[in-house]
Design a protein around this nucleic acid. Sequence first.
DNA 1: TGCATAGTTGCACAATAACGCATCTATGCA
DNA 2: TGCATAGATGCGTTATTGTGCAACTATGCA
Lengths: 134, 134
Amino acid sequence: MHIIQVEPQVVFQALSDPIRIRIIRLLAETGEEACLCELVDSLLEPQYKLSRHVKVLRQAGLLAAEKDGRWVYHRLVRDVDYLNIAYDLLRALPDSEGLFARDLQNFHNRICLREGGRCRVGIQTASLYAAEGD
Amino acid sequence: MHIIQVEPQVVFQALSDPIRIRIIRLLAETGEEACLCELVDSLLEPQYKLSRHVKVLRQAGLLAAEKDGRWVYHRLVRDVDYLNIAYDLLRALPDSEGLFARDLQNFHNRICLREGGRCRVGIQTASLYAAEGD
DNA sequence: TGCATAGTTGCACAATAACGCATCTATGCA
DNA sequence: TGCATAGATGCGTTATTGTGCAACTATGCA
């Protein structure tokens, strides 16, 4: 394990985007790790978009990635004190319009598709949430 | 008093700049308020630059401004839970190169010039820190 | 009432960042 | 060994942001 020295402003910059906030908040709230397709089905955003945002979060030191076959699991970096405070901050944010609650619900639904705790399918948005529109 | 609803990413965006981090960190660490010229003498950055950065922080809901004669005092907004966590976060940041320690020292020196707890002078950088260079 | 000064802001410019599209890589399975 | 699929990325475009310079506003004092 290696700790990459990151300038503080890079961490805040990484969290200055709504989608990236939703990603980190989802993992902070659930304590889970998630592969990209699970994030796609939870946030209902294009795959290439989330792939880029996850990369930003990784380069900022907030996420660690672990490859498992075709899937790449992303989890929060927990061994930096001020990052844990950042996660607490995210969990303390208001959810005035219930947008985060929706992400959370979608994520829970998507987690149910795991087999042996591992994701075994790809993007399921079309079949799972087709009726939701949005 | 009124609370302006601010989207979370705006707060992080406000803290995504090194100078703005230094401003908030200084006020969080000392518990003080500061007028603009005191910030100029503490951070050793141009006045127009800090004026703009302070404006960003104000619009993001992190700072409140109070005018007193020719001086404008800036203080942290304390009545929002997640902002207080943000201030804790800033105080937990490393100061690997001692840059923040310098800001803090300059600020303490500058506070000594107050009369009756109020700033009564303008920018003193030239006379106070002329020898420091940078 | 005019001047010095604390602070703000319009403007132009350079750098950065988010996005959609399409394409590319890498891995498991038939 | 070829195909389907999870994920990454190059490119061009557009929007945003930080900065320096200079000019501006607002306030206290002689």
